[in-house]
Simulated scan of single mutants.
Amino acid sequence: MDRKKMPDTIVTQSPIPYVDIGTQFAQERDDLMPIIEEILASGMYVGGPWNDKLEAALAERCGTKHAVALNSGTDALILSLAALGIGAGDEVITPPNSFVASTAVIAHVGATPVFADVLPDQNIDPAEIEKKITSKTKAIMPVHLTGRVADMGPIRDIAERHGLAVIEDAAQSIGSLYDGKPSGALGDAGCFSAHPLKNLNACGDAGFLTTDRDDIAEYARLYRNHGLVDRNTVARFGSVSRMDQIQAAILHYRLGKMDDLIERRRNNAALYRALLNPALAFSPPCRDIEFNSFHTFVIQVDHRDALQAHLSSLGIGTAIHYPVPIHLQPAAAYLGHKAGDFPVTELQSERIITLPIHQNLTEDEIRRVADAVNAFLAAAA
Rank of each mutant, 00 (worst) to 15 (best):
G87P: 04
L355E: 09
D305A: 13
H162N: 12
A206M: 09
K53C: 05
I36L: 15
F237Q: 12
E290W: 12
V68Y: 13
P120L: 03
T210M: 02
G48K: 13
A41F: 03
M44W: 03
D215S: 15
H327K: 09
S42W: 06
W50A: 12
G85T: 10
Y219S: 10
P17Q: 03
A67K: 14
D2V: 02
H108T: 11
A279S: 14
A339T: 14
L81N: 03
A83L: 09
R156E: 02
I167T: 08
I353M: 08
N201I: 02
K65A: 14
P126E: 00
L222R: 13
L361S: 04
I21G: 01
T296A: 11
K65L: 07
V229G: 01
H226I: 05
D305Q: 13
T134Q: 06
P325C: 05
V166F: 01
Q348I: 11
S72I: 13
N268I: 05
V143N: 07
A319C: 12
R221G: 04
E290R: 01
V373G: 04
R368T: 02
D31M: 04
D259L: 00
G190C: 07
L355I: 12
T134Y: 06
V229I: 07
L251C: 11
A270H: 09
H295W: 06
P96S: 10
A331Q: 15
L70F: 10
E365N: 03
L32Q: 13
G110A: 10
Y45G: 07
G22F: 13
T74Q: 14
D8K: 02
K65G: 05
P126N: 00
T137H: 10
I124T: 00
D230A: 11
F342Q: 06
S239L: 11
M33Q: 15
E290G: 00
D75C: 11
M152A: 02
S135T: 15
D151P: 00
N374G: 01
R273E: 15
L77D: 07
L275R: 11
G48F: 11
N232F: 04
K181R: 12
S239W: 11
I366F: 05
V92N: 07
D31H: 14
S283Q: 03
M152Y: 09
G87N: 09
A375M: 05
E218R: 15
I246S: 04
A319P: 00
G204D: 14
L314S: 01
A333Y: 12
P330Y: 08
E290F: 02
A378H: 14
I129D: 02
A41N: 09
L54W: 08
A331W: 13
L81V: 07
Q245E: 15
V114H: 02
L119A: 00
S14I: 00
F192M: 12
L32A: 11
A331F: 14
N292V: 13
A249P: 04
L119I: 00
A170Q: 03
A194K: 07
E346C: 11
A107Q: 11
Q27V: 08
A370V: 06
A127R: 04
I86F: 09
I86S: 12
G184N: 09
A67H: 10
F282Q: 05
L361Y: 06
A279M: 07
